[in-house]
Amino acid sequence: MNAKLEARREKEAERGPTGWGLGLRYGSEFAGGVLAGAGLGYLADWAFGWSPWGLLVGVILGFAAGTLNVVRAAQSVNNQDGAD
């Protein structure tokens, strides 16, 4: 029975992410980073009157954060492929 469960789990893992899903995942990770950076920058502009520098710097940092997100997501996807 354990073997059966194990086999089922393996099958579950084998199916893996589809290309569509993967693309959407990376895309949303990146977009999320940029959006969060922009939001923070906009907030800083609004709160401290740094306009337009807050938004500018925020978006640039957001790009960096988005890239970091994508790298982490890719790592976790690869790890899953390697581990299971």
């Binding site: 969060a36 939001g39 923070l40 907030l43």
Partner: peptide, 10 residues
Amino acid sequence: MMADESTGAG
């Protein structure tokens, strides 16, 4: 939270 406000602005 900060995100709260940003959505409000959106």
